[in-house]
Amino acid sequence: MADARDAEIDDLINNLDRDYDFHPGGKDNAGYGRDQADNKQQDLQKLLNLWIAERTCPDILPYDEELISTLTDRLRAQVEFIEMTTTDPEAASQSKLKILLVESELERIKFLIRGYVRARMHKIDKYYLHLSTQDTDTKRKLSDAEQRFVLRRATQLKRFYDQRFLSSFPQALQRLDDNSPILPMVDTPDLNEFVFVRVLQDVPGEVVLSNDDSVDLQKGNIYVLPYKAIRKFLRVGEVELV
């Protein structure tokens, strides 16, 4: 009880500090603006990396809900800005250039987001059985919409196949998800596929590959390695896909 109250008070004090920091004009405001600009650049960089990673990685990567929703919010704000400026006849004449820049960037960001979603869609299409039957761990990688899509697709396809031809097959041959080890029917991402990675931070120790080979990952170098071998470094941001 006392702890909870303490935490609350701490929170209040912290908030107070922050509020106070923002208020006095001049220097602090500029600092805040810079922070915000830094955030924007980080967001853009994150989106670029996400797009590249999703296109090059054999497995489906966790969906970045937060980033995409922040960016779509900003997209909306920019569209509003364009509408506001173009409908105002006085402002319109002076700000053609501004609108041109804003619109170009809008399209660039939209292109990236679309590309990101499409790359994911491609994998979801390909591995829909794997994704629809999987445990929560795999599911967490998908956004809500993607999860709904996977389930709908799986049930609809199943129904379609059943009606078309599966129902006339012997019972034993009707399954779509027969995962015997020799002829698995469910396509799963091949985690042994090779990917191009750039090392962002020196990875201590050597990375052991199959066949008892190992490799030393040094900062700035570019390697072609099995995705499986670098997956954990990718997660903590020690390497990036290129």
Partner: peptide, 12 residues
């Protein structure tokens, strides 16, 4: 040409 600060999505 002069141009004011312009707030974009990925940078200012």
């Amino acid at each position: 040409q002069a141009l004011d600060v312009l707030e974009l999505i990925g940078l200012n």
